[in-house]
Design a protein around this nucleic acid. Structure first.
Length: 257
DNA sequence: ATGCCAGAACTATTCTGA
């Protein structure tokens, strides 16, 4: 079972790249973020012709998350992160696929910090912690994956000193991420590669990809039921080098059946 | 501090991203 997460930065602008990647990588389950598309404009037919079922939570212009599966049945559990009925942003969708519960999330960026956007990020993080705690009470395997917009440690940033005041790296969000892990979640990439420099995002400016000036902000968190099933994990780095690509690369894990 | 790039939206300029 191969599960992937990919911040596409606009699903319509990214469609050729997305389809090419699906064909080469062939993940069984895919979590997408930053669809930047209203519900009715998601390219449903193209996804279906590529052999994937899909559920999604779109939004005009911003955000948007989706779960795709290669022929597997998707049972949607919820859309929207619990804890704030006023929150209109499409940043969370959860489903059950093949006995695995999958939460697909797009955590707020939070810049500029401090400020209202940073407050929203921290509040969203608190709600995520609460929901994650509830999920841990379950007996079933659970994956919480997506764009967390957090570099967990200095190893996850090309130049940590430049990012200390940024909403993706400030102590508050690193602490929040650590608290999440301390609940009992495993960071899949770090479990398999504790010391390697691994990035999942390179910005479009200043030849960041060529200079490998990257960040690790897309993560897979596994509950204890899944930890022992983790077989492999990686980043499809080459996709970041394709024409008209996203600023993120896809990240994936493989689980024992 | 800001620009550098990229995508989307009531098409030209603004907002957002990380």
């Amino acid at each position: 079972m191969k599960i992937a997460t990919y911040n596409v930065n606009g699903i319509n602008a990214r469609l050729p790249v997305l389809l090419r990647w699906l064909e080469t990588s062939r993940p069984d389950i895919v979590c997408l973020q930053e669809l930047k598309s209203p519900h009715e404009k998601i390219p449903e037919n193209a996804i279906s012709e590529a052999g994937y079922n899909a559920i999604w939570h779109g939004q005009k212009r911003w955000n948007g998350v989706a779960i795709l599966t290669r022929g597997l049945e998707i049972e949607e559990v919820s859309r929207g992160l619990p804890g704030d009925p006023e929150d209109e942003q499409s940043r969370y969708i959860e489903a059950k696929v093949s006995g695995i519960r999958i939460g697909c999330l797009y955590l707020p960026n939070g810049n500029p910090a401090p400020g209202p956007k940073f407050d929203y990020k921290l509040e969203w993080f608190r709600r995520l912690q609460q929901h994650a705690q509830d999920l841990l009470k379950r007996e079933e395997p659970v994956v919480l994956t997506g764009d967390y917009n957090v570099m967990p440690t200095e190893k996850d940033v090309y130049k940590p000193e430049r990012w200390v005041d940024d909403a993706l790296f400030r102590p508050e969000v690193r602490t929040a991420f650590k608290e999440l892990l301390d609940q009992g979640w495993t960071d899949a990439i770090r479990k398999l590669y504790p010391d390697e420099t691994i990035y999942t995002f390179w910005d479009y400016f200043r030849n960041a990809f060529d200079r490998n000036a990257g960040l690790r902000i897309d993560h897979f968190l596994l509950n204890p039921k899944l930890e022992n099933r983790l077989k492999a994990a990686g980043v499809d780095r080459e996709v970041r080098g394709w024409e008209k690509t996203s600023d993120h690369a896809p990240v994936w894990i493989e689980l024992k059946d």
